[in-house]
């Protein structure tokens, strides 16, 4: 296993205070990693820093040795927490854009998944339900053959049956040497497909551990552990 991503003393300050402070983190390739933490713990900030949407206040993040830029964007597939797609576009048009933009985009994979989830490629985004729009975005992101997938709350808005399909889709579609970083509050739904969890609290790394080790050592599920650690 080789290091795919490394954060060194990574900090991000917003006007209201520190969103991430002095984060040191290493992620290996070939893993499915859950990015967990209470609201406001810094999950989305971390994903934005990895994807170059934010610039660190201090410290650095490197993906395969590179700081975020053109090269890292060609190997990272990112599902942001808010959509950036134009609601007026048809799915086919968005697919064309993605295929144009990303050399690693696999059209046939995208159309196959759309068909599986009964989504008409000729439909416009704005005529779809919120859940269906989210499915389309996830399909686009998972149709790239990337080295790192950053998924910010990918299953929050979709029904449980579609959630199952999406998780299977994730399992089916990532290459063995790719890593998937998933931020979510729906721990129960995804914990069985994870290798490890990265838990943030107040912008700091609270825990990075293998999920099987947590189950073995503590005898609890990841969901239960989270509820115990962050009990209000």
């Amino acid at each position: 296993m080789s290091t795919l991503l490394e954060c060194k003393n990574l900090s991000k300050r917003y006007e209201k205070g520190m969103a991430l402070s002095d984060l040191n983190l290493k992620l290996e390739s070939g893993r499915i990693i859950g990015l967990l933490g209470p609201n406001g713990s810094g999950k989305t900030t971390l994903l934005k820093l990895i994807n170059g949407l934010l610039v660190p206040t201090s410290g650095e993040v490197r993906i395969l040795g590179n700081t975020p830029g053109v090269e890292t964007k060609s190997v990272i597939s990112y599902l942001p927490d808010q959509t950036y797609l134009s609601a007026n576009q048809k799915v086919t048009q968005i697919i064309d854009t993605f295929a144009d933009f990303y050399a690693d985009f696999d059209r046939s994979r995208a159309y196959h998944m759309l068909q599986k989830l009964n989504i008409q490629p000729s439909e416009r985004l704005k005529t779809m339900s919120k859940g269906t729009q989210e499915k389309v975005q996830l399909i686009l992101v998972m149709s790239r053959r990337a080295k790192l997938y950053c998924l910010d709350e990918p299953i929050a808005g979709v029904d449980p049956a579609a959630r199952d399909y999406i998780l299977t889709t994730i399992l089916n579609n990532y290459a063995e040497d790719a890593t998937i970083l998933i931020s979510t509050h729906l721990i129960q739904d995804i914990e069985n497909i994870l290798d490890e969890v990265v838990v943030l609290q107040n912008g700091k790394l609270k825990l990075q551990a293998s999920v099987e080790d947590i189950r073995m050592e503590r005898g609890v599920s990841i969901d239960t552990m989270f509820r115990e650690v962050f009990k209000c």
Binding site: G30, L167, E176, N192, D195
Partner: peptide, 11 residues
């Protein structure tokens, strides 16, 4: 098998 069981392939 990992897909059938919905578990991590490494596991």
């Amino acid at each position: 098998l990992a897909c059938e069981a919905s578990v991590n392939p490494n596991t």
